[in-house]
Computed example of a mutant assay.
Amino acid sequence: MRTICVKGVRAALFVSACLSFAVPAVAQSVEWDVSLWGQRRAFTEHVEHLARYVERATGGEFVLNLSYGELSPNRENLDGIQAGRFEMAQFCAGYHPEKNRAITALELPFLGVRTLGEELAASRALYAHEAVVAEMAGWNAHLLMPTPLPQYNLVGGGTPPQDLNWLEGRAVRATGGIARALGQFGAETLSLTATETYDALEGATLDAVAFAQHAHFSFDTISLARWWTTNLDPGSVNCPVVVNIDALDALSDAHRAALDVGVERALDHYLRNYEDLILKWSEVLEVFGITPVTFSDEELANLRAGSADLHAIWAEEVTQAGLPADELVATITAALEAHRQSVD
């Protein structure tokens, strides 16, 4: 309500007249800058969908401006969120585990995640854990939504490997728990960003690349590939979308509601799109003439056997950082069990 007092010129009739009336609130338009990298791909489809939804749902009052590399290097997106240089960003935990130790629990090797739906359920459960929330708050960041990715496998050039002993002394692009798992067999892992990987593989700095399916298209490593491992499945990477907490708190109720609904719709769209890509992957390998490499159950058992030690090493590091390692892993395990029960 606003009150306006009008003083009359005819003092005999009016000393003053005060009129109170309601003034409609003027809608405030909001624009958020969003820092991504590379190019539009399956990995960013949920952000693309979210941007379309919130703009449409708010009649153009809430706009997400998506930038692919113009705002920040991909290793510095979390820093940019903290500094308020942009309002939303995507990052990968394995690029800087020291900044986001809690969510690296999702990058542990051989967690037993089988589907994108399971990866989504585990991520959302862990993102809600108080230790994770607190760690991200230190970066002025709120975990808005995950980027569910399948189990990673390798592509490489040259003669296809016959067994896992091939990894001995080989340079492999891998991050997080995947790097640790492959290191058990003597691989020399390099934590390159996705955008750095093609040049390294083309220049023979790398012998193989651990990526999810979409990335081999997006960063063109598939054009250099001669073989692909079908069943290595050492783990995945976790690459959340975060928003600046101050920007989130400044949203109106209507814009926050549009964002929340948009996230759910965006994740549904993302899963459908990525699952379709996975279904077509075998056809893609055939078209590109890429040889599938399948390892024996015995070899994979040997690879998994070391995962307990890797988990213990991770737990010690995380505990020393003041985080509840056992609770974080238990949260993931419980989420996986609950999801499986819900779909059975």
Rank of each mutant, 00 (worst) to 15 (best):
F91Y: 15
C92P: 09
A93K: 14
Y95V: 03
Y95N: 02
H96D: 13
E98N: 07
E98W: 05
E98R: 12
K99F: 07
R101N: 10
A105F: 04
L106I: 06
L106P: 14
L108M: 02
L108C: 10
P109D: 03
F110W: 12
G112P: 03
L116D: 01
G117T: 07
E119D: 04
L120R: 15
L120E: 15
L120I: 04
A121W: 09
S123C: 02
S123K: 06
R124N: 05
L126G: 13
A128I: 04
A128M: 02
H129Y: 15
H129S: 14
A131M: 05
V132Y: 15
A134C: 09
A134D: 12
E135K: 08
E135H: 14
A137G: 15
A137N: 13
A137D: 12
A137H: 15
A137P: 04
G138V: 09
W139P: 13
A141W: 11
H142R: 12
H142D: 11
L143I: 14
M145W: 00
P146F: 08
T147Q: 06
P148S: 00
P148C: 03
P148D: 01
P150C: 00
Q151K: 02
Y152V: 00
N153A: 12
N153H: 13
V155K: 00
G156A: 11
G157P: 08
T159N: 04
T159V: 11
T159C: 00
P160H: 01
P160N: 08
P161A: 06
D163G: 08
N165G: 14
N165K: 04
N165W: 09
L167D: 05
E168G: 04
E168Y: 01
E168I: 04
G169C: 07
A171T: 01
V172F: 13
R173E: 15
R173S: 13
T175L: 02
G176D: 05
G176Y: 01
G177D: 07
I178V: 12
I178L: 00
A179I: 10
A179H: 05
R180Q: 13
R180C: 02
L182K: 12
G183A: 05
G183W: 13
Q184H: 06
G186Y: 01
G186T: 08
T189F: 14
T189W: 01
T189P: 09
L190Y: 15
T193G: 05
T193L: 13
A194R: 05
T195M: 02
T197R: 04
T197K: 05
Y198I: 10
D199N: 02
D199A: 10
D199P: 00
A200E: 06
A200I: 04
A200D: 02
A200H: 07
L201I: 03
L201F: 07
E202D: 03
E202G: 00
G203W: 05
A204K: 01
T205A: 14
T205M: 08
L206F: 15
D207M: 11
A208K: 06
V209F: 10
A210M: 05
F211C: 03
F211M: 10
A212T: 13
A212F: 00
H216M: 11
H216R: 01
F217S: 08
F219N: 07
F219T: 02
D220L: 06
T221E: 15
I222R: 03
S223D: 14
L224R: 14
A225I: 02
R226E: 13
R226I: 05
T229Q: 03
T229V: 02
T230P: 00
N231Y: 15
N231C: 09
L232H: 04
D233F: 09
D233S: 10
